[in-house]
């Protein structure tokens, strides 16, 4: 089991990198319509979600919390123009769930943009929303977002979950990269990003407790840091996290001196915006995994004392 110091340090450095590279969270207002204006919203929503976890768990130091809050204020004020860019996105693609999903963690942290809320409420009433074709895990996420906002999920989360890969606990040797991401995201949505580990169904928890060590072992050896980080989050959501020392040592060693986490193998080089687009996600995941694992590690220490 990994000690809290190493777990914590990974997250501190990740937030430092994200703050230093905050301009990478950018929109492209003159984007090719084929690409879509909403394409660049995803990193902002993920940032808000991870910062929410960081504030919630209460294991960040004062410097880390301050940087996270400054980051959020920066993207809300500068990148999203106080939420007006979300409204613009909504008007560009009125029936897309993306602006609402990006907005929700901001709202949960005290930011407000009523225009998005009205659109979300209207969209939720549409048959089109319930009929939206997508993967089972994404559908579970949409239901979870609706519940968090105070709407009745359509379809109910239990129904959405039942259609996911994880719910059916399939043969563990068939897991590939994309399946592994489905598993991690099912766990994120089920537990509200680690807030309620007890909401993980018992059979899924037992399944993950048995097979997660194999997947962590494998993706550590393959040096797929982005996926490994997400699997380490899943570990921290289990009733008895392993906080696997070998995996965490490798994960921490992959992190760059400035805090960036490469997605796969080595750190890419080249145009700064392109590098940002490749490594922002694994770096956010590093902050996420670090926060949850530190929290669980400290809880275990407290329970043992």
């Amino acid at each position: 089991m990994t000690g809290p110091r190493l777990l914590h340090t990974v997250g501190v450095r990740a937030i430092e990198w994200l703050w230093a590279h905050r301009d990478g969270f950018r929109l492209e207002t003159d984007v090719d319509p084929e690409v879509g204006f909403l394409e660049r919203f995803k990193p902002i929503g993920e940032l808000a979600q991870v910062c929410k976890v960081l504030f919630r768990e209460g294991v960040a130091g004062s410097q880390q919390s301050r940087l996270a809050r400054q980051l959020l204020d920066h993207v809300w004020r500068e990148t999203l123009d106080g939420g007006l860019m979300l409204v613009r996105g909504q008007r560009t693609e009125p029936f897309s769930p993306v602006p609402f999903e990006v907005y929700l963690p901001f709202r949960e942290l005290g930011y407000s943009q009523p225009g998005i809320e009205r659109a979300a409420t209207l969209n939720h009433r549409l048959l089109s929303c319930a009929a939206f074709e997508t993967t089972a895990t994404r559908r579970l996420g949409m239901s979870a977002f609706q519940r968090r906002f105070g709407l009745t999920p359509r379809p109910p989360e239990a129904e959405s979950y039942a259609r996911t890969w994880l719910a059916r606990t399939p043969e563990p040797w068939t897991v590939e990269g994309h399946t592994a991401y489905d598993i991690t995201h099912a766990v994120f949505h089920l537990t509200d990003w680690g807030e309620h580990p007890d909401r993980l169904p018992a059979d899924a928890a037992a399944y993950l407790e048995t097979w997660l060590p194999v997947w962590i072992d494998d993706w550590t050896d393959l040096r797929r840091w982005d996926l490994l980080g997400e699997l380490l989050v899943v570990d921290a959501c289990l009733p008895r996290p392993t906080l696997d020392e070998q995996a965490w040592q490798a994960f921490a060693a992959a992190q760059q001196p400035d805090g960036a986490m490469p997605a796969v193998r080595e750190m890419p080089t080249g145009d700064p915006d392109e590098v940002f687009d490749i490594v922002y996600h694994p770096t956010l995941v590093a902050a996420f995994a670090s926060t949850l694992a530190t929290s669980r590690s400290l809880s275990d220490l407290a329970a043992a004392s």
């Binding site: 040797w173 897991v175 048995t210 097979w211 060590p213 194999v214 494998d218």
Partner: peptide
């Protein structure tokens, strides 16, 4: 037995 089961999965994946 659970560890050997894990090893089976690992060997198949590799």
């Amino acid at each position: 037995v659970v560890d050997v089961s894990r090893g089976f999965v690992r060997a198949v994946r590799r």
